[in-house]
């Protein structure tokens, strides 16, 4: 389990004295990181389709938790609402409608496991090398949020909304168009005729 080893390698230096150690946040991070990685691995290895969807819930929830740690509350809430609320339900419907085997099934993977592991490890190696080379032990400073928000204000959310409806209005409108197109496309595809 090379990934777990890497995470430990990363978490351990946090306790070195010269860094400002934000204990609760780091503990939360460590716990949820381990849980998330385990859950993500279960999503891609479990032999039960429904279990995969449920493990996915754990991963997505963990991602939401990450957002909170990173002080992006609005995105976190959206993550919970959209992913946990909507996407997972969609997946369960997909499982149901395609009559996927509900119990344990040995036939969920193809014969490319070795290739998959090889590619995955290679990618991870490259990525982690690049990240460690580039960012090393740089601290998370939240520099961008300074001045936007105090501890108990809604400043960041307001800043996000200002950005969406100001600077990024056209991409936003395009997005609504895309959603419309996806809606129509899904109906056209799934309709029986």
């Amino acid at each position: 389990m090379n990934s777990a080893a890497l995470i430990i390698a990363e978490v351990v230096p946090l306790v070195t004295p010269e860094t400002t150690f934000d204990a609760p946040a780091n503990v939360v991070f460590a716990v949820q990181a381990v849980v998330m990685i385990f859950a993500a691995l279960r999503v891609v290895t479990t032999k039960n389709v429904v279990h995969a969807a449920l493990w996915l819930v754990v991963v997505l929830g963990g991602v939401g938790l990450n957002y909170i740690l990173l002080q992006a509350e609005f995105v976190a809430v959206t993550q919970f609402l959209v992913y946990l609320g909507a996407v997972i339900v969609l997946f369960l419907f997909g499982v149901m409608l395609t009559r996927a085997p509900l119990g344990v099934s040995d036939d969920l993977d193809n014969n490319q496991k070795k290739i998959g592991i090889g590619v995955g490890v290679a990618l991870l190696a490259v990525l982690s090398y690049a990240l460690i080379e580039t960012f090393g032990r740089s601290e998370l400073t939240f520099a961008a949020y300074e001045g936007v928000a105090g501890p108990n204000t809604n400043g960041r959310t307001q800043a996000v909304s200002d950005a969406i409806f100001g600077q990024y209005l056209i991409p936003f409108e395009m997005l609504s168009l895309l959603l419309l197109a996806a809606l129509i496309g899904a109906i056209v595809l799934a309709r029986r005729d």
């Binding site: 990934s3 890497l6 995470i7 990363e10 978490v11 946090l14 860094t19 934000d22 946040a25 780091n26 991070f29 990181a33 998330m36 990685i37 993500a40 991963v59 991602v63 990450n66 740690l69 990173l70 990618l123 991870l124 990525l127 982690s128 990240l131 460690i132 960012f135 090393g136 032990r137 740089s138 601290e139 998370l140």
Partner: peptide, 14 residues
Amino acid sequence: MFLNQFLLLSAILF
């Protein structure tokens, strides 16, 4: 907290 702890987590998920 470090930048890299999040970035590596994301790399692993990826």
